[in-house]
């Protein structure tokens, strides 16, 4: 009992720490860990991850909001789409077989690894800490463009979040930054502000289905919360670029395991 608890909490700490250090959020590591190592069913793992995502988003966003980096109006507008997408995703997760969810998560891991390789920003620092991390409160003037593209991408991001239990920053931040003309720091902060609201939209659906297990969620959520706080605190001091290739390898390996499991093939040693 105590050993399982400690294992879950430690796993949460590690996932939260590296997730926030790499700017990916905790979900991308927590779900494969629960599913592959602890044998937690996919939907339950997603439910736990959603609550962890809410906790870390609240803790992280409070910093960004205070620094006035997040554009609350833009965030609220895009949340119209992310919350709807999240509800659709959450309901869909109840209908898809667990193998399909496992395969989809494997594909998401591949996409994440690809984004890291190509240095596409997930949370503003996926390829290494940005050079400009002085805590300047001056936000450059910008004009939001392509709002319809942003709303479409947000719906999709919400969908992924509700279906697979991740924050969806890996989709929103690049779209805000590359297509909508939002500065990277603002895009990152706004995405962080939105993630908790998006996750809450589907978390209650998982709750109502009874997918959330108290004794799994408790230690994991606490662990992720602590790990993410530490990770985001030292984020600016660590050369994440050194970690990049190691984690690309971890993501690819995990993706392979999830895909094999999803297709009911023999699972290799983990």
């Amino acid at each position: 009992m105590l050993i399982t608890f400690s294992g879950l909490a430690l796993g949460g700490i590690v996932a939260g720490f590296f997730g926030s250090l790499l700017g990916l959020g905790g979900g991308i590591f927590i779900i494969p860990m629960l599913n592959l190592i602890f044998g937690v069913e996919m939907r339950s793992a997603v439910a736990v991850s959603l609550v962890a995502v809410i906790a870390t988003s609240s803790a992280a966003a409070s910093v960004y909001v205070q620094e006035r980096l997040s554009d609350i109006r833009l965030g609220m507008t895009l949340e119209l789409a992310t919350t709807l997408g999240a509800i659709v995703g959450g309901l869909l997760a109840g209908r898809l077989p667990r193998e399909a969810l496992t395969v989809l998560f494997g594909l998401l891991l591949l996409y994440t690894a690809g984004s890291m390789v190509r240095n596409i920003p997930a949370q503003g620092n996926s390829g290494g800490p940005s050079r400009d991390n002085s805590r300047k409160k001056v936000v450059p003037e910008y004009q939001v463009r392509n709002l319809s593209v942003g709303l479409g991408a947000s719906f999709f991001a919400g969908n992924i979040s509700g279906l697979l239990g991740v924050g969806g920053g890996i989709i929103k931040v690049p779209v805000m930054y590359l297509s909508m003309g939002v500065p990277l720091k603002v895009a990152t902060a706004t995405s962080n502000f939105m993630i908790g609201v998006t996750a809450a939209a589907s978390a209650f659906i998982y709750y109502s289905r009874g997918d959330l297990d108290l004794l799994v969620a408790g230690p994991v959520v606490l662990g992720v919360f602590l790990g993410a706080r530490t990770g985001s605190r030292i984020m600016h001091r660590v050369r994440a670029a050194y970690l990049k290739w190691f984690f690309v390898a971890v993501l690819l390996y995990t993706a392979m395991q999830m895909l094999l499991k999803g297709f009911n093939l023999h699972v290799l040693w983990f």
Binding site: S58, A59, V65, R68, I72, R73
Partner: peptide
Amino acid sequence: MPDIENTGQANIYISRVLLVGSGL
């Protein structure tokens, strides 16, 4: 987009709620 500075007071409240809520 309207000036972000205008929502300063709301920002502070939101930030406190987030911190207190998640910590609690």
